[in-house]
């Protein structure tokens, strides 16, 4: 199953994704998208693709591969998170 990921660095809160995929994406208090933990269903996949394509800064991506996700389960639906981030090594 594909998974949605948000690149939080690129995202500047246009909010189109939440309009096109309200089943899985909602906006926080400041207009930035939050992904539901619920995985995508096959029926939603076309909508998810449309939402990703509509992002003006390509911050929303629909990924098929088996790469381990980076941070953030709400930034990566349907896959376990590997820990990283502010580990000062």
């Amino acid at each position: 199953m594909s998974e949605l990921r948000i690149d939080p660095i690129s995202c500047v809160a246009h909010g189109m994704c939440a309009e096109l995929l309200p089943e899985r994406i909602w906006l926080d208090d400041w207009g930035y998208p939050v992904l539901d933990a619920e995985p995508l269903t096959p029926e939603l996949e076309a909508h998810a693709r449309r939402a990703a394509a509509a992002c003006p800064v390509f911050a929303l991506r629909l990924q098929r591969g088996s790469r381990p996700a980076g941070r953030d389960p709400r930034g990566s639906v349907g896959r376990e998170r590997t820990d990283s981030g502010l580990t000062r090594a």
Partner: peptide
């Protein structure tokens, strides 16, 4: 929580 590129 978990919505930044890093863990700040």
């Amino acid at each position: 929580t978990r919505r930044g590129a890093c863990a700040l």
